[in-house]
Structure formats: C-alpha cells, structure tokens
Design a binder for these strands. Structure first.
Length: 104
DNA sequence: AACATGACGGACA
DNA sequence: GTGTCCGCCATGT
C-alpha cells in the first residue's frame, strides 16, 4: 500500500455490506481526507480490478454510477441490481435508502 | 519542472 | 432540479 489513506479507503470499501452503497466523498472523509474523493477514484482504478473490492458499491454524491465507459456502467448496474439495489428511470439509486455509514 | 487528467464535490446562477 | 465553473490532489506525459 503506497499510503495509509489508500489502505483505509480499501478497508472501508471492503466493509460495505451487500445491498448498500457509499459515495466517493464520504469514503474519502472517513479515510481522513474530506477533499480526497479523486484519490478514492484513483484507488479503485489501481486496486479495483486486482483486489477483491466491491467497487460497484461506490457511487457519486447523486447516487448515480460515476464510471463513464458504457461497458463499465452496464457491468456495475448489473452487479448492484443483483444485490437488490433498484435504479429509477434515470439510472439513479435512492441514497437515502441504500447509503451505508461504517459506524454501525 | 510544467501541464493535463480523472469512476468527484461544492458553490452559484 | 439543471448546467457551469472551479477547487482538490495523486499520477501520467
């Protein structure tokens, strides 16, 4: 692990229960860097594939899938739906219902 | 060393 | 609620 921040980010993501999600910003804040959302993004780019991370449970602050590539988007949506998460007609998740707070 | 980039987020019109 | 602009910050060129 290049730094403690990344290590914590990965640990937090791994702790997200099935059927729940977290936003980039909240993960960054919980990892000790309130403005480090982009580093969370980078962590997923680097470790998402190799590590066994539930990267699909990480969405942006609007409850929308953040990935830009069409194939990646479809893959993430499919994984989340298989966990019981519903998307509205706009492809958005109801954060108030699925957001997870690592305090529990 | 300087500049561009990104699976973001917040402020503002 | 939507669109635009700007700040963040590690990485890549």
């Amino acid at each position: 692990m290049p730094n403690p921040f990344t290590e914590k980010v990965l640990a937090i993501i791994k702790s997200i229960p099935e059927g729940h999600v977290m936003t980039y910003g909240r993960i960054a804040a919980c990892a000790g860097s309130p403005r480090g959302a982009r580093q969370v993004v980078r962590a997923l780019h680097v470790y998402g594939k190799k590590e066994q991370l539930p990267w699909q449970r990480v969405v942006d602050r609007n409850g929308k899938i953040a990935i830009t590539s069409t194939d990646g988007y479809a893959r993430q949506k499919e994984l989340l739906e298989s966990e019981g998460i519903k998307f509205d007609t706009n492809g958005t998740i109801d954060l108030g219902r699925y957001i997870w707070y690592p305090e529990e």
